[in-house]
Design a protein around this nucleic acid. Structure first.
Lengths: 154, 154
DNA sequence: CATGAAACCCTCATACT
DNA sequence: AGTATGAGGGTTTCATG
């Protein structure tokens, strides 16, 4: 099933601010409240809207520092990948992790209060399993971070 | 001002699911609804809660592919940084961008439907401004992506 | 799809223990 | 912080055009 222009506009709005009342969403996209509400319910039911969450200000909760870790995996050891996934899942400071094609095997993003705390998390990670290489890159400035995904291809 | 255990629990819950009624949040954290509501209002007022948004399923809206671009900036040209920031801001496929300390100057994450579309965005980017070096890494697997930030340091 | 109008729940506010 | 209470607003549903 495909989305029309109304659906895309609704998603765009809700991705920016999910506190807007349905009636107002309707106004903005050019729909009255009932059909607008039906569309939103459909988008939720069919899984286009994964969740509605509160975004917390990182600096306010004292995790203003972001660090990326580039991971190279040790040569084939059975179970390593599962252990790594488990570690990534367990450590709450890790907010993103991806397996990449190319030189680097995994990329990890984590948020911490400061370098000291980062070092603790880092040590906790390398004590859990072995790595071929870990390269940490400290973030100096966040240019963009949005949870809003383009809907133009939907 | 600092947060207590109640505040942290409330934030943890709202970061995972912001549709839970206040009365239920109160139950879960061990507070009755009025004080719970007061805390949430305070957390919002003081900026701990930045926004409430809908998270859209990337694959459902046809941007299932994620690519990282590692950027090396050309040697000092006035205005380059501002132009780069503007480009990052303008391109909706770019969802994250950071300035790093170390070898790589900037890291960019973007979401697209497929390699062809990525190439279009890539070309659009390099036609806007010059770069010393761009290295793209395609994401094979997303191990973790959460908007939920640890509250243990708050 | 639009309009209008219910019924219901939740939010928000207040007063008091 | 808890309990109680009430007004208001938003959500959800339905009937009608």
């Amino acid at each position: 099933m495909t989305l029309d222009a109304f659906d895309r506009k609704i998603l765009d709005l809700l991705q920016e601010d999910a506190t807007v009342p349905i009636a107002e969403i309707g106004e903005r996209v050019g729909l009255s409240h009932t059909p607008c509400w039906r569309r939103i319910r459909r988008l939720e039911k069919e899984g286009y809207i994964r969740a509605r969450v509160a975004l917390v200000d990182r600096k306010k909760v004292n995790v203003g520092m972001t660090v990326f870790i580039q991971v190279k995996t040790p040569i084939h050891r059975v179970g390593w990948i599962d252990e790594f996934k488990q570690a990534v899942h367990d450590i709450p400071e890790i907010v993103e992790s991806y397996r990449l094609a190319g030189e680097i095997d995994y990329l990890v993003r984590l948020v911490v209060p400061d370098i000291e705390r980062f070092d603790q998390v880092y040590k906790a990670l390398i004590s859990r399993l072995e790595f071929l290489d870990l390269t940490s890159s400290i973030v100096m400035e966040e240019l963009k971070f949005t949870t809003s995904v383009p809907t133009r291809y939907a």
